[in-house]
């Protein structure tokens, strides 16, 4: 078995970038100046990831305000007031599905790939993942016009057909080999056969890996269902070992037989830096319990953006040391 390190999701927005966004919004700098700062931060992050031998990472989601924005805007949706993002002191704007999704071009992947090209990281694009909200998490955190959609699943289906497939098809053509679907909702809501079908549909349309990332909790039934799906498709579940502290034995049992899966073992909601020795003993236990597994991806339990920037970078370094 091989342990590999993985980074997913959003990184903390730097003070420099926050200032640039604020200055852009008050017309004090132009869009080119703002773009330059975005790319400086992206380069700094990807260089750090590369230097620390992280197997694959997201693009840090520097352009995202939250998991649903600017995507909601690209889908031509309105957004509602602020809503708490699960149990965090972090708020997002709720997408409102009161009209059909209109999605002309794969703007998320196009922007990401363009950024990667400009900063000179094209040769590493296959190790940089494209992030999208999972269909279940999106619909459970949106306002839906019941006159227009007869059920939440209809919205999820439309989102997958019109947005996800368009994004991942373009991304694959441009060399992206990892798609991260953020599904924290799978820690709280039972997975339905329709949602499982949507994951299948996504996987069938992508030649690389589909990562289903679950955080803020652990639902054993959902993980077992995902495992069955992962056995057939190129789907890699990533689970949170920190928030509700499920036992290693139980998690290993739920994921038994899978060729690869991810474990979020660093706490991205606490500044305390974990002790390497203690983390290694967790990995030893995992190793004993997962003999059939080829790769275990070691990562943080949720977005690193919940930490101050310098602590987030320290945790990446720790992840690197842990796996090396």
């Amino acid at each position: 078995m091989i342990f590999r390190s993985v980074i997913f999701g959003s990184m903390p927005r730097s003070r420099r970038l926050a200032r640039a966004i604020s200055r852009y919004q008050s017309n004090k700098i132009d869009v080119n100046a703002l773009e330059e700062v975005y790319r400086k931060d992206l380069r700094k992050f990807l260089e750090y990831v590369y230097t620390n031998n992280i197997y694959r990472s997201s693009d840090g989601m520097y352009r995202w305000d939250d998991l649903f924005n600017p995507l909601a805007n690209y889908m031509s949706l309105d957004v509602n007031g602020l809503k708490r993002f699960y149990d965090n002191n972090f708020f997002f704007r709720q997408p409102i599905f009161n009209k059909s999704i209109s999605y002309e071009e794969p703007k998320i992947s196009k922007t990401m790939i363009n950024d990667i090209k400009i900063i000179g990281f094209s040769n590493r694009v296959e190790r940089i993942s494209l992030t999208l909200p999972g269909p279940l998490t999106l619909v459970m955190n949106s306002l839906i016009d019941e006159g227009l959609y007869t059920s939440k699943i209809k919205v999820a289906e439309e989102y997958v057909e019109k947005v996800v497939i368009k994004e991942i098809t373009y991304a694959y053509r441009e060399g992206v080999r990892h798609i991260d679907l953020h599904e924290p909702e799978l820690a709280f809501s039972k997975i339905s056969p329709e949602i499982l079908d949507l994951y299948k549909r996504i996987a069938e349309n992508f030649g690389g890996n589909i990562w289903i990332i679950i955080y803020f909790g652990y639902d054993s039934d959902n993980i077992q269902l995902l495992r069955k799906l992962s056995e057939e498709k190129k789907i890699i579940p990533v689970v949170d070992l920190v928030s509700t502290k499920p036992s290693i034995d139980k998690v290993a049992e739920d994921l038994r037989g899978l060729r690869e899966y991810g474990l979020g073992i660093l706490d991205s909601r606490n500044t305390k830096i974990e002790v390497l020795k203690e983390l290694r003993s967790v990995l030893e236990k995992v190793e004993k319990e997962s003999r059939d597994t080829e790769y275990i991806y070691i990562t943080h339990n949720s977005n690193l953006e919940f930490l101050p920037e310098k602590i987030a970078f320290r945790k990446i370094k720790l992840l690197s040391r842990l796996v090396s």
Partner: peptide, 17 residues
Amino acid sequence: FYGPVRVWGNNFFNKPA
């Protein structure tokens, strides 16, 4: 204090430890 964290949009607070 290690530094600011974002609460929403481009709004931050100095979350203490």
